[in-house]
Design a protein around this nucleic acid. Sequence first.
RNA 1: GCGGAAGUAGCUCAAUUGGUAGAGCUCCAGCCUUCCAAGCUGGAGGUUGCGGGUUCGAGACCCGUCUUCCGCUCCA
Length: 514
Amino acid sequence: MSAKQEDIFKQVISHCKEYGFIFQSSEIYDGLSAVYDYGQTGAVLKKNIRDYWWKAMVQMHDNIAGIDTAIFMHPTTWKASGHVDAFNDPLIDNKDSKKRYRADVLIEDHMARIEEKINKEVEKASKKFSPFDEAMFRSTNGRVKEYQAKIDEIKDRFSKALNDGDLNEVRQIIVDEEIVCPISGSRNWTDVRQFNLMFSTSMGSVSEEASTIYLRPETAQGIFVNFLNVQKTGRMKIPFGIAQTGKAFRNEIVARQFIFRMREFEQMEMQFFVRPGTEMQWYEHWKTARLNWHRSLGLGHEKYRFHDHIKLAHYANAACDIEFQFPFGFKELEGIHSRTDFDLKQHEQFSGKKLQYFDSELNQSYVPYVVETSVGLDRLFLAVLSSSLKEEVLEGGDTRTVLSLPPAIAPYKAAIFPLVKKDGLPELAQKIFNDLRFDFDMTYDEKDTVGKRYRRQDAIGTPFCITVDHQSLEDQSVTIRHRDTMQQDRVAISGLHSLLNKKTGIAGLLRSLA
RNA sequence: GCGGAAGUAGCUCAAUUGGUAGAGCUCCAGCCUUCCAAGCUGGAGGUUGCGGGUUCGAGACCCGUCUUCCGCUCCA
């Protein structure tokens, strides 16, 4: 990151705090690493972004159903999904090379090297003796027997240690076997630590009955386990989607870059169920559709790009990210994955329940293929905020800080000011405010000079400021000031509602997608 | 996790070789004000991130710890 980018990023972070968008969690207790709270302006902005996503995905699609599943799920869910195995690595660091290894991999590599020695002995012997009885050689040769015994011993110790969850024993094996770091060649090891990316807690009132359950590391599984419920009760026909937004939790080893990588974060995701064989066509469809959705926010087309995954996850046959140009470079904003039938098949296997769809056109049942779109809401929030924050130099050399948020998602749609705090102007301003707040997020301010109030609203991204002046009392008109241009128009009070609706409504954005 | 930098009022920053913690902005109450942060009066806000240590005396020096940012590492 360049010094300038770093500067911009720091400005974004401090702006977030100063204007009530984001606070560090439990700040009075020194905070909690990589956990953040949304403040009074941030909560509304976040909610508006979520609403826009929901409306675009659920409200505007006949064939996408929206649900809201629990954070807690049956523990077997995570065995089926692969998270228990994939996210449960014992790790060890070499203090000299500063390299981190999976302890089980170190030990397995070590055993493989001994195995290699046996193979060499066998190879040597096979050249020496003819005819050569390999089985006989293996069971009688002293050196080979010694090596084999060693392997068996390590294997026994290792599997026992893993089963007991005895990490000290795992480390002891590495020490006893004099396993060295491939980089530094030293045996200067740290303790073995278990890094499980899933947070766990226990369920059940009595400790003996308690069972370990996990906070979901992704929201997707809540959709997969409800696939048939939604399909049957919603009478959904393939292709169809199920969407939801919600919190997910990952105990990241390093969580950094403000709200970009948090331990508790919110996903907005949709799983689209399709006929096997059509998944690539739908994958392409959603790539385009999702990119268009992002671009509709007007942050700049050049800020987005696709990044195709070369190395695919175990469940996917195609995957890409939509990346956004954050202050710290292009980073993942949304993932689009063709997940095949992996998840549903896994759940079929672990639950013993059929998760199939009867396709009346083909007159057959099958496990559908899945195309997933998954956005990080917090990342999107950061994308919107960091690209909206600007320092402008005005004529005369003054600067102003303006947050040019897309009006449809701004925390406040408009602010109402009486030009001065007397002559009945506050009363009229209040009346307008009370009238408009039924339909719009509004704010009212009569403190300080009107110029100062304009700047305050600029900083939190309010697209319009409506000022009541003396002329308003005579002809029922007000001035409306545009955030981005600072231009003012005189409009009738009676026209404010439709004006705000047109300029700040989500419907305008949704129409642009069609 | 390793290495680097930093942490003083809501924000930006001061505080001489260790010697009474300050300013501007913000905020609050009031006055004045006919449209882009700049007038007047008064007020609030700090165990200097936290805990130890050295010292007659620590915001400053030492140790530990927490948090943030950067690099490495990790990231279905």
